[in-house]
């Protein structure tokens, strides 16, 4: 009887809410942001297969990644956090050089890694804080990073005998675990939902956290780089020509697309 009463109450409340429903919003759909070969960030609107590139939203960017909810940008000396529209909402000084980024599962900022100084910055919800000494990673060729939590990260490194996935304690930079990744070749990208994306001879492979793999057919250029450009969207950059491509890794909607050329 209690359960019934509770359920009845629930239905009544939901029904009222439905009758009062009026909050709708229509907007251009946003796929994400891409970084072009000139260090400019462009919004990508539209839907899959129907992309529209906007004008530069930021310039002089060395590294960038976007989760759909937030963006992380690295200039020569600063690390910026943007909202989903590309507006800067936080910024800190940063070491020189490129950066690798990681988001939390909900798309919020999590981690930044600066290969030139082998150092991490951890997002505390408001700003990026320096982590402990990570100089032990200085000799590692780090390809991608992911945040396990505020104290630990997973990184992928390139070694002469292949790719390895390492567990790193952020406070000390100590490698606490390592696992080889047989069959996985660079470029490889860790995604916030736990997926690992890499290339194979037929295109792009998405290895889900449960080990299942999705093979996305693509005629990839010889030399490419992966980065996250939106929620379940990856940017593929042809390092030879600068041409940009997009990969949807949304389960059930995996596909490889050509992005419109960035026209200056």
């Amino acid at each position: 009887m209690k359960e019934f009463a509770k359920f009845s109450a629930f239905l009544a409340f939901l029904s009222m809410a439905a009758a009062a429903w009026a909050q709708t919003a229509l907007a251009p759909p946003q796929v994400g942001f891409i970084q072009d070969g000139h260090g400019q960030i462009h919004p990508v609107n539209g839907v899959a297969g129907n992309f529209l590139l906007g004008g530069p939203a930021a310039t002089k960017v060395l590294s960038a990644a976007f989760s759909g909810s937030f963006g992380l940008l690295k200039s020569s000396s600063a690390l910026l956090v943007t909202d989903s529209r590309g507006h800067a909402i936080a910024g800190v000084d940063a070491p020189p050089g490129l950066a690798l980024f990681a988001f939390s599962a909900d798309g919020s900022p999590a981690l930044a890694y600066f290969p030139q100084t082998a150092s991490f910055r951890v997002w505390d919800g408001h700003t990026f804080q320096a982590s402990g000494d990570s100089s032990a990673l200085a000799k590692q060729a780090v390809l991608s990073i992911a945040a396990l939590n505020s104290a630990a990260a997973t990184i992928i490194v390139q070694r002469p005998d292949g790719l390895f996935q390492l567990g790193v304690q952020l406070s000390t930079g100590a490698v606490v675990s390592q696992m080889s990744l047989p069959g996985v070749s660079a470029p490889a990208l860790l995604v916030a939902n736990g997926a690992l994306v890499y290339r194979d001879a037929q295109g792009v492979v998405v290895r889900r956290p449960n080990g299942a793999e999705n093979h996305i057919a693509a005629h990839l250029p010889a030399s490419v780089a992966f980065s996250q450009m939106g929620q379940a969207w990856l940017q593929v950059t042809d390092l030879g020509t600068g041409r940009l491509y997009a990969v949807s890794i949304q389960p059930g909607s995996e596909h490889y697309y050509t992005l419109p050329e960035v026209r200056q």
Binding site: L14, M16, P28, P29
Partner: peptide, 15 residues
């Protein structure tokens, strides 16, 4: 953006 659109519908719920 042509006929492409994003729609967000919010349903307030008590319960």
């Amino acid at each position: 953006t042509g006929g492409a659109f994003a729609l967000l519908a919010k349903f307030p719920v008590t319960g």
